[in-house]
Each structure stands twice: as C-alpha cells, then as structure tokens.
Computed example of a mutant assay.
Amino acid sequence: MSALALDWSNTSSAGYPTLFAGVLIGSIVPIVPTGALVGAAAAVAMTTSHLSLPLVLLLSVLGAAIGDVVTYLIARAGSEAAIRRLVRGQRPDRLINARERFAKHGWQLVVIGRLVPAGRIPVLVAAGAVAYPWRRLLAATAIACVLWALAYAVLGIVSGGIFDSPLVATLIATVLVLVVTGAVQLVAKRRERRKS
C-alpha cells in the first residue's frame, strides 16, 4: 500500500498523470509512442524513487484499456461508415469473413492487435463494425493491455537495471522499444509480402 501513499503535491508525481494521459491519448489517436512512454516510465521507476513500478504498470494498463474501449465505441457508433470504409474496394464476402473471424477468434484478434505495432486500431475498428460483443471485448482488452504494458515495462526494467542514470536508462528504454517495434513491423511486412 505504500506505493499508493504518495505525496501528490510533489512535482515528481506529475509523471503519473502524464503517463496515464499519454497512454490514453495515444491509444485513441496514435500520435504518442505509448510503448516508449511505458518503457521510459519503467526505467525511471527502476532508477529513482520518483515513480513506483506497480503504479506505472497499473496506470499504463488503465490508460490503454480505456483508450481501446473508446476507439471500439467510436467505431461501433459509426458502424455504417466503418463498414463502408472496411469493405470499400473489397469483395462483398469480406465483411462476412470478418464477422466469422471475430465469432471464432475475436479475443485472440484483440490481443494480437494490441501487441502488433499498427494492428490495434484496424482490429478495434473491425470489431466495432461487425458489432463484436462489448463484454467479450472488455475481457480481451484487459488481457491485451496487461500483456502489452508488461512487455514494454520489461524493456524499461532491463535498461533501468543496467544503468544507474535515469536519463540514460530512459533513453536506452526508448531506443529498445523503437527497435523492437521496428523489428516486429519488418517481420509483419515480410510475411505479408510472402502471402501475396
């Protein structure tokens, strides 16, 4: 419980709202590198007493989960427009296939979409467009966000465990996140090329 009993009047505690807001906004509009933000916060938590690692993880999961649900709800509310966008230029059976895929493997798609760079928004838009049940989405999103936050926090923990300087650990964590993200994107692109 000592992690929750922080002095919120201390300016170093501004890191928590910044982390939460950054992950939340980045989960709705992908303009913030949320993985790098989580890794950097974990690195700071490992090298200073300014942030608590359990709170970094908790706020990262909450921000990501809320952002994902908001993205899903936006797609669900505008489902006709989302459907038209998804099937524009595609065969009519594409929507039927998407519904079938979500019926059989919906939670897996949500989890993988969260973990694969640039996969989350298309999966959430598709889930909203095919009216994937929100209760199933909430459970899948919770699992996905926990795994996602842990994966990126580990990069920050590793860099924070190696370097004593918070600045160096944060920079290394950010670079590690960007390298891992780039490598995953490269592998995904090569697989797509092989399929086509």
Rank of each mutant, 00 (worst) to 15 (best):
T71I: 03
S12G: 02
G39L: 07
R94G: 04
S27G: 12
R99H: 07
I83R: 15
M46I: 04
Q90S: 07
S49V: 13
A75V: 01
R91C: 06
V29Y: 10
G67E: 05
T11A: 12
R84H: 12
R84Y: 03
I31H: 01
L59R: 02
T48L: 13
P54S: 06
S60F: 01
V56S: 05
G63C: 11
G78S: 04
A41N: 08
F102H: 07
P30K: 00
S27T: 05
G15Y: 14
Y16V: 11
P33Q: 05
A21D: 03
L58Y: 06
R88V: 03
G89L: 03
R99I: 09
T48R: 09
F20M: 09
A36M: 15
P92F: 08
A75D: 00
H50C: 11
R85K: 10
V56P: 09
S49E: 15
P30L: 10
N10M: 10
S27C: 06
I28Q: 02
L55Q: 02
G67Q: 10
E100S: 12
S79H: 15
L95G: 11
P33S: 06
P17Y: 00
V56N: 04
S79T: 12
D68L: 07
A45L: 11
G39P: 12
A14D: 05
I66V: 09
H50I: 09
S12A: 12
L37P: 07
L73V: 09
P30Q: 01
V23A: 06
T18R: 06
A36K: 10
V44D: 07
V70R: 01
T18S: 06
H50S: 15
V29Q: 01
S9R: 11
S27Q: 06
T18Q: 04
A42T: 04
E80Y: 12
L57H: 08
A42G: 05
L19T: 05
G35E: 04
I31R: 02
A103V: 02
R99P: 04
I66Q: 02
F102N: 09
A45V: 10
S60V: 08
L53Q: 05
A41K: 02
A81M: 05
A14H: 13
W8G: 03
S27F: 02
G78F: 00
I74R: 00
E100Y: 03
L53G: 04
A75E: 00
P33V: 08
S9N: 08
W8F: 07
A81R: 11
T34P: 10
S49T: 15
V61E: 00
P92I: 09
I96A: 14
A64K: 01
V56A: 07
S52E: 10
S12R: 13
P54C: 08
S27Y: 01
R84A: 14
L73R: 09
H50N: 14
R91I: 13
W8P: 04
E80N: 12
V70I: 15
V38G: 02
E80H: 13
P30E: 01
M46S: 06
V69W: 02
A42H: 05
T48N: 09
V38C: 06
P33A: 07
R91L: 13
F102I: 06
L37V: 15
D68N: 12
A65K: 00
G39W: 05
Q90C: 03
K104H: 14
P33C: 08
D68R: 03
P30A: 06
I25S: 12
R85Q: 10
N97Q: 14
A41G: 10
A14S: 13
G67D: 03
D68K: 09
G15H: 13
